[in-house]
Computed example of a mutant assay.
Amino acid sequence: MSKSHTLKLISSSIRTCLLCLTLSFAHSGALAQQTVPDTIAQRAIACAACHGKEGRATNEGYFPRIAGKPAGYLYNQLVNFREGRRSYPAMTYMVAHLSDTYLKEMAEHFANLHPPYPPPQPANLPASTLERGKALVFSGDQSRNIPACIACHGEKLTGLLPSVPSLVGLPRDYLNAQFGAWKSGSRKAAAPDCMAQISKQLSVDEISAVSAWLAAQPVPENMAAAPAHSVKLPIPCGSVPQ
C-alpha cells in the first residue's frame, strides 16, 4: 500500500470520527434540551417501584396501597418515617430531607388518586378463626378494653377523615406485618399510640384472624372515608385530631 493511499485512509477515518462526534454532540444537546416536567405526578413515579402504578399496590403483599388514603394519614406516615417512628430503610432514605410542605403535597397527590382495587384475597383459615376475626372487627373485646375496628375506621371500614385509614383492600401480609410491628414496638405513632396499645393486647392468632378476615372482604362501591368528627373515638389517639 502506497504512502499516499495510507494517508488518504487516515484522513477519511479522521473525518468519519469527527462526523460521529459532531452527531453525538448534537444528539446530546437535543437530549439536554428535553426537560422533565416539574410536577408532583412526575416526582411520585419513584413511589411506583414499591407501591405500584398510581399507588394502587402490587402483588408484593408487604407494600400497601396508598392511593385514595386520607391525606392526613399519608402525611402522618411520611413524617413518622422521617422522624424514626416507623422504620423501613428505603422510605427513610427517600423522606429524610423533605419538608413538611413537600410531604403534604405528596400526601394530597395520592389521596386524590382512585384506581381500581384488586379482588379480595381468599381466606384459607378455618371458619371458626374467621368468625373470631370478624367479631373483633365489629365488636372488639370489652373484657380487655379492645375497641372494635369499626369504632375508629368507620362502619364500612373505609377510614375516617382526616387521618384514619381504610382497612379493606389491603393485603393480609401487610396487615399482619403492621400489627406485628406495633406489637413489638418497631412501629410507633404520635402519643398516645392507640394502635400499639390495641396490638399489644391481641394474641398472634387473633391478629392472624383479623388480618385474614379483612383481606377477604370486597371493597364497597363507595370507598370514601367517613367525614371528620362523625365518629367519637373510643380511646385517645395521638394521630387523630379531636
Rank of each mutant, 00 (worst) to 15 (best):
S4Q: 15
S4N: 15
L7F: 14
I10S: 12
C17W: 09
C20G: 12
C20D: 00
H27S: 15
H27I: 14
H27V: 15
T35D: 07
V36N: 04
D38P: 05
R43E: 10
A46N: 09
A48W: 13
A48H: 08
E54F: 07
R56C: 01
A57V: 02
G61L: 08
G61A: 14
K69G: 00
A71H: 12
Q77N: 12
V79T: 11
E83L: 03
G84T: 07
S87H: 06
Y88D: 04
A90M: 06
V95H: 00
V95E: 00
L98G: 01
T101M: 06
A107V: 11
E108G: 03
A111C: 04
A111E: 07
L113E: 05
H114K: 11
P115W: 08
P116E: 13
P118L: 11
P119C: 02
P119K: 12
T129E: 14
F138T: 15
P147T: 09
I150F: 02
L157D: 12
T158H: 00
G159M: 01
Y174D: 11
L175K: 00
A181Y: 07
A181R: 08
S184Y: 01
R187V: 03
P192F: 05
Q197E: 15
V204F: 06
D205V: 06
A209P: 09
A215C: 12
P218S: 09
P218R: 06
E221A: 13
P227N: 04
V231K: 12
V231M: 15
K232D: 13
P236K: 07
